[in-house]
Nucleic acid binder design. Structure first.
Lengths: 143, 143
DNA sequence: TCTTGAACCTCTAGTGACTAGAGGAATTAT
DNA sequence: ATAATTCCTCTAGTCACTAGAGGTTCAAGA
């Protein structure tokens, strides 16, 4: 049994974040010492590792909660877990595509400007003010 | 002179968002009617178009505020505006790179799973639980 | 001119996933 | 025994909005 600080060191997840995960139900409330401090074991270490890895991959807390529910029902079809991962993949791909459009336009904007003039004639500012200068549409980056 | 709703229609920026921009200082407080309703002119329309375009490109409110300050001092060097845009480009590129790593791993994870079995043997869940299965490091996606 | 209904106003609170800080208690090391 | 560190809870802040309550003003038609 180890403290929240040790768990934090083992997993790289910050202490307040661990408490936040407990609060939101991603982690079960652990045992406590007589003095009310949290004490964790191997099971929590593994689950937090799972959560951390999924977060690193950009899964939402909500999606991770769903994955954990699936883990707790090992008889359920694997398809549901795969579906969540595939949805995440689609989300990541869509985001990449959007960002690549933004990259293209930012390159265009920054290339057009020597950086030597004064703001009055600045191509960056002109481009931002005049969407008509864009070559293509770019969707809003929803983060 | 036109209302906030008209401005919203012209720019595609939602009414509450326009008020939010005013509150945060991105937009100046406009004239009001006797009945306290906002009335806008061409200048505000243009500035909001500028803001919208910059937001679409992923610039932060803070960065946009800086760009607007530069616009208001046309004698300042264009370099500052270009620097902001270049920083944004770097940010976008870093994000793309991270997301591509995530994409690779998500493909690996989802390809490894037939979707036919039960969760107990699910490769998706196993992969998420065991970071050691990853081929490469992937940084946390900071959004 | 009056009425109706749409659009407007302010204010507060909620979103996601944390992070920061206050003020105090428990644990660990010396 | 004492000092340093870690832990506890609770509240509030972050970013860029979005939603809703409860009330007021405006514009168009009768």
């Amino acid at each position: 049994m180890f403290s929240i600080g040790t768990l934090s060191n083992q997993t790289g997840v910050k202490v307040p974040t661990i408490r936040y995960y407990e609060q939101t139900g991603l982690l079960d409330a652990p045992e406590r010492t007589e003095g009310n401090q949290r004490r964790y074991g191997k099971a929590e270490l593994e689950r937090l590792g799972f959560i951390r890895h999924a977060r690193d991959l950009g899964f939402s807390i909500e999606a991770i909660a769903a994955l954990i529910r699936l883990q707790n029902h090992p008889d359920r079809s694997c398809k549901e877990a795969t579906d969540i991962a595939i949805a995440q993949l689609g989300y990541v791909r869509a985001k990449i595509e959007r960002l690549q459009k933004l990259e293209t336009e930012l390159v265009r904007i920054t290339d057009g400007c020597s950086g030597l003039g004064v703001t009055e004639d600045c191509y960056v500012l002109a481009s931002l003010g005049n969407h008509g200068l864009c070559e293509a549409d770019h969707d809003r980056e929803t983060r």
